[in-house]
Design a protein around this nucleic acid. Sequence first.
DNA 1: CCTTGAACCTGGGCGC
DNA 2: TGCGCCCAGGTTCAAG
Length: 296
Amino acid sequence: MPELPEVETVRRGLAPTMEGALLQRLELRRPDLRFPLPRDFAARVEGRRIAALSRRAKYLLIDLEDGATVIAHLGMSGSFRIEADAIEATPGAFHHERSKDEKHDHVIFHLQRPEGSARVIYNDPRRFGFMDLATRAQLDIYPAFRDLGPEPVGNLLSADYLAGRFLGRSQPLKSALLDQKVIAGLGNIYVCEALWRSHLSPTRKVSTMVTKAGKPKPELHLLADSIREVIADAILAGGSSLRDHIQADGTLGYFQHSFRAYNREGHACLTEGCGGTVERIVQSGRSTFYCQRCQK
DNA sequence: CCTTGAACCTGGGCGC
DNA sequence: TGCGCCCAGGTTCAAG
């Protein structure tokens, strides 16, 4: 569950358990995810205390007190769950129901806290996720972070910034917004939703959002606002839970109930007075959902 | 430079 | 019940 709001929700769900905990043992149940796990991974983190959990774009960062940081990306199907001692004693169906999936439990953080022990388990059926390890100094020049654009919430994402990125480019809006170098953290769902909210077509060329003088047109201001708002709304809702994906704290995000375009092919457009129908097209191999009537 | 398409994986849903 | 096909929240790399 991997766009920015989902990763932020994971971070918030894991923080109370992980922050301040002693990382007693790191159990690696396979040598690789998408990439080989770091060399001596377990030896380099075991016995350290976790200082803080943070996030950059879709990356979860686990900062250890000795200055090392575990970098985790959830890919398409990665998730974390927490098991505390109390849960272990819970009998019955709950465990059986979950056991089917246990073959995809790839990395287990065994934690020690004042109130007892807990496990944080990384599960990822498709294994598009990965984990890496970096020191504080390496983090600043970490390849995956170096070229990332600004976070979609905050002051750095502005219409003026986007105008600079869009000027003279012929890309469609959809692919520009999916580009992590333009904005870091958006994915297929929230790009569709932001475009629907701002009544902009995913196929529109980005250069048409900018005046000849290089200034943002009014609709580009609208787009920047829509992006900030949809991400903020989704974080407040605890992200989107597709296919019964549960969050780390066991609860479900509910932003999927707020989808206005994503996954709504054939349904009526929800723009006031529009009367159009949401359709699905494919852009560079990925589904785009939008209303041709009101998104121009 | 640009864009598209395939690749990396597994599982769920659907039609036959 | 099973098989084959399509689809899935991401990223990267090759080819045109």
